[in-house]
Design a protein around this nucleic acid. Structure first.
Lengths: 199, 199
DNA sequence: CAATAAATTGAATGGTTGTTCAATAAATAG
DNA sequence: CTATTTATTGAACAACCATTCAATTTATTG
């Protein structure tokens, strides 16, 4: 037990270094050697823990999922009422909190890989689905407690994510921070509208 | 004139080979050597036309813009009435036509670069803006001829692209083709709704 | 303490990267 | 036909790449 801890710790450390390096250099041009340099260890040690670069990327995507799930946990833990949880969650999703969680460049690079590597597609789809299902489940709770009227939580959750994906893709094409914030705000309002909440 | 034609032709050829190779191998791992191999020429010849790899990527993004603009031209040329143009354009945008125009993997890879390289961001933003403005201009024509009611063409165009970006990001996270088509269809209906057209 | 297993190093491998440069082939112009 | 410009080749460069493997250090166990 104490043994595998060291191993798991190292793995986490490597994935974190991978992520940090990828932010600066780009996901695809982050080499094992560069990760090793960041950690001041030998490249061969990384290979010892991750047999291939693909394994590293898979681990990074998992790491990403964990981060996103924390936003959900936070909304759950800091509220008691399902409706309050929902409001807190949607507010987080359409705010800097969500956007700053994971580096955009790394995220879209990983997303781009989906089109060439089926195993990445599976992994990435799974994250997306898991997050949608989490939201769907919360929507169902809100519906059951008559806090909102939502007959098809699955579809509604899909539409929220739909809006979310579009929002973040779009705002990065806007030049000024001011424009970006304005659009993010509008999207948040639209999301609350979709849920029948004025806020 | 005849001279620079050869030069321009070669440049186009190289960009096309770059694109084709990027589809298979990924944008970031497409090297000058690989492009040269595809064209059966020397790597140094590519360097002769494009001083750096960044120049090549910039040219590829321009190539991408040209392709998207063709969809607009097609809608303009095959219709006389602004409203018909609009209906034809929206139909194209929310269909396979639009999605098949440029490889998703290459597109999102280029998009990811935006976050690390300011010059790419500028280039990419310009494409996005140019397309939005094209649509906005058409919306204005439709409003002026009283075909639709659209007081703020700019904002409406933004929302259409907003929906478009979200749609294509989202549907690639769905596993089956059937689900993807279903969502694309729904988005198209939503777009027409946003324009006050039932279709 | 001794034996075993895991973590880590360091060197070596063969291949690929972007870029430079002089030499050659082809096209253009006077 | 000659001079000049342009297109293209081919070789060389040092830097970096992922991966391998035996040697060594460190930790765990009996």
């Amino acid at each position: 037990m104490g043994l595998s801890n060291i191993s798991e710790l190292r793995k986490r450390e490597i994935v974190e270094a991978f992520y940090q390096t990828a932010i600066k250099e780009g996901l695809e041009s982050t080499s094992i050697a560069k990760i090793a340099k960041t950690l001041e260890i030998q490249p061969s040690l990384i290979v010892h823990y991750f047999k291939s670069k693909d394994e590293l990327i898979t681990a990074l995507i998992d790491h990403c999922l964990e981060l996103y799930l924390k936003i959900f946990e936070k909304a759950y833990l800091s509220n008691e009422d399902p409706l309050e949880m929902l409001i807190s969650l949607i507010s987080s999703m359409f705010s800097k909190d969500w956007n700053d969680l994971f580096d955009d460049g790394v995220y879209y690079s990983a997303y781009a890989m989906v089109f060439r590597e089926p195993s990445f597609r599976e992994k990435f789809s799974k994250i997306h689905k898991e997050l949608r299902e989490k939201l769907s489940s919360l929507l169902k709770d809100c519906h059951d407690t008559k806090a909102i009227n939502c007959n098809n939580p699955n579809e509604t959750a899909n539409r929220i994510f739909f809006l979310l994906d579009g929002t973040y893709f779009f705002i990065n094409m806007l030049s000024t921070q001011k424009e970006q914030n304005e659009h993010l705000k509008q999207s948040k309002l639209l999301a609350f509208e979709m849920l029948g909440l004025k806020k």
